[in-house]
């Protein structure tokens, strides 16, 4: 298909039988890139062409949708995916290859790029295109040192440029009408060359409380006053899909079991969101949760040390704020 003009090839990913949200975001990033450089966008997806999933492809219409179809791709292996993707890239010969930055992509894309003597620019958060695209290639922005530094990367030389796009960095485009061709691509794969043997995915059994792996923690402190008041924070935790944690005095009083205690004599946690409710923020507690990505503090004492480490704070009576928050969360989740 060398008659096609060079373009941007986006590999989408299926999760729970749907094209994942981050895939749409990667497609939006690809369109940003394509528009800046007058390129067209093609997408590819591992699936049999008869899959109704193709009808769900939305956003700005791609030029071609490739259905990569092979029995050896029914379960993910790095060897299988890298080989199949490499063959499609050779055929399509794009200028840019764009992935969503997922665990699966991280597993095979660096290897794929290496086959083309390229380096994946991973976890891209922004793309700056410049006027005169031929002479001024785009700048890719990514974060270094855990977000404490932004870096500008540029691709040099010939050959496709490989990118993976960070979740949430681009907003998925609204649907637009357009002509799309669906093409089936059947890679040549050799079962003998697939060296890894993947097992069935499974969820870790939730037998014990594991604060360490929870992505949201709702943590309660002495501000709750009485054991009888615990249900209001439990309701918030349930609404958020969060685990309930506590500071030491709560567990000391036996209101919650010791394994839910966060702090120097309890667990050290680093969830995506840590909601500290009625916790003043003694050092013993802070050391157990300081690594959290986002800390929310709800406390009626505006001078409570917890506000020093919080990203968001609400100064107020937790008995008013927490029920309001539960309601707002439930409303937002529909």
């Amino acid at each position: 298909m060398s008659e096609l003009t060079s373009g941007v090839l986006v590999f989408l990913e299926i999760k729970n039988r749907e094209i994942s949200r981050i895939s749409w975001e990667a497609m939006a990033a690809a369109h940003t890139l394509a528009e800046g450089h007058g390129l067209s966008v093609d997408v590819a997806l591992v699936s049999s062409p008869g899959n109704p999933i193709f009808e769900t492809i939305h956003g700005k219409a791609p030029r071609t949708v490739y259905a990569i179809d092979h029995p050896l791709l029914h379960e993910y292996t790095a060897d299988g995916f890298a080989a199949a993707y490499a063959q499609l890239i050779e055929q399509v010969n794009p200028s840019y290859v764009v992935f969503p930055h997922t665990y699966q992509v991280r597993d095979f894309a660096p290897c794929l790029a290496t086959r083309f003597k390229q380096v994946l620019i991973s976890d891209v958060t922004g793309i700056e295109t410049h006027a005169g695209a031929e002479t001024a290639p785009p700048t890719f922005i990514r974060q270094l040192l855990q977000g404490k530094l932004n870096a500008h990367y540029r691709h040099r030389g010939t050959g496709p440029c490989f990118l993976s796009i960070q979740a949430g960095a681009f907003r998925a485009d609204a649907a637009e009408a357009g002509a799309t061709t669906l093409a089936t691509f059947e890679p040549r794969l050799d079962a003998a060359k697939i060296r890894t043997k993947p097992g069935e995915p499974f969820r870790a059994s939730a037998q014990t409380v594991d604060l360490g792996s929870a992505s949201i923690l709702v943590s309660v402190g002495r501000g709750i006053k009485e054991e009888a008041n615990l249900p209001i924070v439990q309701e918030l935790a349930t609404a958020l899909g969060a685990e309930l944690a506590a500071s030491r005095p709560i567990c000391d009083s036996g209101w919650l079991p010791m394994e839910r205690q966060v702090g120097s004599s309890g667990q050290t946690v680093a969830p995506k969101v840590y909601l500290a409710i009625g916790i003043s923020g003694a050092i013993q507690h802070l050391v157990g949760m300081k690594g959290s990505q986002c800390i929310v503090a709800i406390n009626k004492d505006e001078n409570a040390p917890i506000f020093e480490v919080a990203d968001y704070g609400i100064v107020g009576d937790l008995f008013d704020v927490v029920p309001a928050l539960t309601a707002a969360v439930l409303k937002a989740k529909g």
């Binding site: 002495r222 030491r248 005095p249 000391d252 009083s253 003694a282 050092i283 013993q284």
Partner: peptide, 10 residues
Amino acid sequence: NTMFRDALAA
């Protein structure tokens, strides 16, 4: 101080 803070709270 920090030890007694917790203990007195109890």
